[in-house]
């Protein structure tokens, strides 16, 4: 995706990221978050959760990855996410985005981002500013 081709209203190609237990364990190790509520379904259920949860910052990083695939070489300037609902490990969420602002002078676009859990509820909502090189 080139900056010249970006238009307000464009939708980023939706993805179904891999949030298998294997991936989540790998992430929690990299992020120093090796807590059982993220990696142990049984432990999480005993805490009253629907199952082990994908860490909010992992969902945030999945959204960043989607942006990189949409616009290779772009630079994410900011990524602001609100963690709104549970995203259970091993389910199939959908991540999506849409361009909501285009700054021709700065070559920066803003995108709305959503991670929708398998049950249709919003798991994460956010916005990002993305810079394109000249």
């Amino acid at each position: 995706m080139l900056f010249e081709d970006v238009e307000l209203g464009d939708e980023l190609p939706a993805e179904h990221p891999d949030i298998s237990m294997e991936r989540v364990v790998e992430f929690t190790k990299a992020a120093h978050m090796n807590f059982p509520r993220f990696t142990d379904h049984e432990f999480a259920r005993k805490e009253g959760l629907p199952g082990a949860l994908v860490p909010g910052i992992m969902s945030q990083a999945l959204l960043a990855t989607m942006i990189h695939r949409w616009a290779p070489g772009c630079r994410i300037l900011s990524l602001d996410t609100v963690f709104r609902g549970h995203v259970v490990v091993g389910t199939t969420p959908t991540i999506s985005g849409a361009v909501t602002d285009v700054d021709d002078d700065e070559r920066v676009v803003e995108v709305d981002l959503t991670l929708t859990a398998e049950d249709g509820r919003t798991g994460v909502m956010g916005t990002a500013k993305v810079a394109f090189s000249a």
Binding site: L8, G9, D80, T100, D101, D112, G126, T127
Partner: peptide, 12 residues
Amino acid sequence: DGRAKVDNYCQW
């Protein structure tokens, strides 16, 4: 908790 600029609402 709002992240929308009114101008962008209009454009959208």
